[in-house]
């Protein structure tokens, strides 16, 4: 897996869908014949992966929304994991 650059634009992978499920009180990521239930942090990151925002934008937005600093490494690590699992794809 290649190192994620600050200008990488992650997006939910083709054919997958992120949505809020009231019955589970959680966001879920849906893919062919499967689903993962996301915790709040994972959902907060994935819902910002729209193929337009860069990694830098996503980190800045999260830090602003949650009023904390220093999220960069953790967000990048999670996005790398999500790419490895084919939940996210990187748009040029």
């Amino acid at each position: 897996m290649s190192e994620l650059g600050a200008t990488a634009r992650p997006a939910i992978a083709h054919g997958l869908r992120l949505q809020w499920e009231p019955a589970q009180e959680a966001h879920v990521l849906l893919y062919p014949e499967g689903m993962v239930k996301l915790n709040g942090s994972a959902a907060a990151i994935l819902s910002r992966c729209d193929g337009i925002r860069t990694l830098t934008d996503i980190v800045a937005d999260l830090e602003r929304s949650y009023g904390v600093a220093g999220l960069s490494d953790e967000v990048a690590a999670f996005i790398a994991l999500a790419v490895a699992r084919c939940w996210l794809e990187i748009r040029p």
């Binding site: 019955a23 689903m35 993962v36 239930k37 996301l38 942090s41 994972a42």
Partner: peptide, 17 residues
């Protein structure tokens, strides 16, 4: 920030997912 992903495991009886 905790980015652990919880795999779905329904409580019983949870909804028919």
């Amino acid at each position: 920030m905790n980015t652990r992903i919880e795999l779905t495991s329904a409580a019983r009886p949870g909804p028919p997912l």
